[in-house]
């Protein structure tokens, strides 16, 4: 028996929206640790890894490991029927061929359940080694989305160059070229900003993207890599999950684009670089 109840159903809805255009069918692995997914896009250029830890759910029960193969477009259709403030419960029997999504509104006076057929998906599971990356960039997820969107109107690929003081995004196309440089902001800017207001004294709030780029760089070695913007734009569909995005880069390795999911886990996207031959 698998049963997982998430109070903030909007998180699950957002997660699905962020991956459903990249991956068609995927196996969700339900274990005592949590609800996880690893899948490649159809071209095998990128990979998504999702982890929703059991401790982040309001209720979680997993008697034995279950693999649930789902069509993500169909799953998204079902989750779209849940309101953002609904609680969502997923249920499946160990040997069953359906998953049930149950939605409850905050007043608990409307309860819906949707059953979706599971599928057998034959897929290879890839081992992702722990890697020390040469460059780690943390920046506003809104800014990253904006940069990828803006550059994709000029070119198809982006070259990301990280130095200790800045991260530079470059593209070129038929109409010309573009460079966007985000300077590393001073220490501590990424965390929290203290704002003094007259009424309530000192108030702590997260910095908004409008106040700057909030770029934090951890660098072992300067790195320059080129990626297809189409995929990065797809990853940016996860923007609403987290205020910040973390990019990890190393020479000739896939970039890792990570969005943390508050108190629950993460969605990580891996994208293989383009190389000049």
């Amino acid at each position: 028996m698998f049963e997982a109840r998430i109070l903030q159903g909007s998180i699950l809805k957002k997660v699905l929206e962020s991956i459903k255009d990249l991956v068609t069918d995927a196996n969700f692995e339900c274990t005592a640790n949590g609800f996880a997914l690893q899948a490649m896009d159809s071209s095998h250029v990128s990979l998504v890894a999702l982890m929703l830890r059991s401790t982040g759910f309001d209720h979680y029960r997993c008697d034995r490991d279950v693999t649930m193969g789902m069509n993500l477009l169909n799953m998204s259709k079902m989750l779209k029927c849940a309101d953002n403030d609904d609680t969502i419960t997923m249920k499946a029997d160990d040997a069953g061929d359906v998953v049930t999504f149950m939605f409850e509104n905050p007043k608990a006076d409307k309860i819906s359940d949707f059953q979706m057929k599971l599928m057998d998906i034959d897929t290879e599971h890839l081992g992702i080694p722990d890697t020390e990356y040469e460059a780690t960039v943390k920046m506003s997820s809104n800014e990253f989305q904006r940069i990828c969107r803006d550059l994709s109107s000029i070119g198809d690929t982006v070259t990301i160059a990280v130095t200790k003081d800045s991260v530079k995004f470059t593209t070129s196309g038929d109409i010309g070229e573009a460079n966007i440089t985000c300077r590393r902001t001073s220490d501590g800017d990424m965390k929290e900003e203290k704002v003094k207001t007259e009424e309530d004294g000192e108030k702590v709030h997260n910095t908004k993207s409008s106040e700057g780029q909030n770029v934090d760089i951890d660098l072992q070695e300067p790195v320059t890599l080129t990626f297809a913007l189409r995929y990065l734009n797809s990853f940016c569909k996860a923007t609403s999950l987290c205020e910040n995005v973390r990019l990890q880069l190393s020479k000739e390795l896939p970039v890792v684009v990570q969005y943390l999911i508050e108190d629950m886990g993460y969605v990580r996207f891996y994208l293989a670089p383009k190389i000049e031959e």
Partner: peptide
């Protein structure tokens, strides 16, 4: 000429 690498060439199959 720029070519796109594949993700499976970086991570081994388990």
């Amino acid at each position: 000429y720029v070519s796109q690498l594949h993700i499976s060439s970086f991570f081994r199959t388990e």
